[in-house]
């Protein structure tokens, strides 16, 4: 059972500002999702290995070869703030 406090906590961790009505709505929706999962749990999956993906594909691995990329100039240009090729952010320590 997901409580409203849980939703508040997750929202805070995700830096989401939710209105009262949003909190209400998401608490309900999340509980509905969990209820569906509960339903699935009725199936016996003891003999099935847990997967993180629906299909198992061979590893797409990359060779260790350098490619240059200059997208940074455009990215700095549209960033909120930059200086001397650094991104500039409010002081953090």
């Amino acid at each position: 059972m997901i409580t409203r406090e849980t939703v508040e906590k997750i929202a805070k961790l995700a830096r989401l500002q939710l209105s009262e009505s949003d909190l209400e709505k998401y608490t309900g929706q999340l509980n509905n999702i969990l209820a569906d999962v509960e339903k699935l749990k009725e199936l016996n999956t003891d003999a099935i290995e847990a997967t993180t993906h629906a299909v198992e594909v061979a590893n797409p691995l990359r060779e260790d070869e350098v490619k240059t990329n200059t997208v940074i100039d455009a990215v700095l240009e549209i960033s909120p703030d930059h200086e001397a090729h650094f991104f500039r952010v409010p002081k953090v320590l």
Partner: peptide, 27 residues
């Protein structure tokens, strides 16, 4: 020679943000 999830160089001491691409900038 390159980063773990993209082909940018890992060379130390380059000017700021020059060893970057769409992947390691998190676009």
């Amino acid at each position: 020679k390159t980063k773990i999830f993209c082909s940018c160089s890992t060379e130390f001491g380059k000017p700021p943000n020059t060893n970057t691409c769409e992947v390691c900038l998190g676009l």
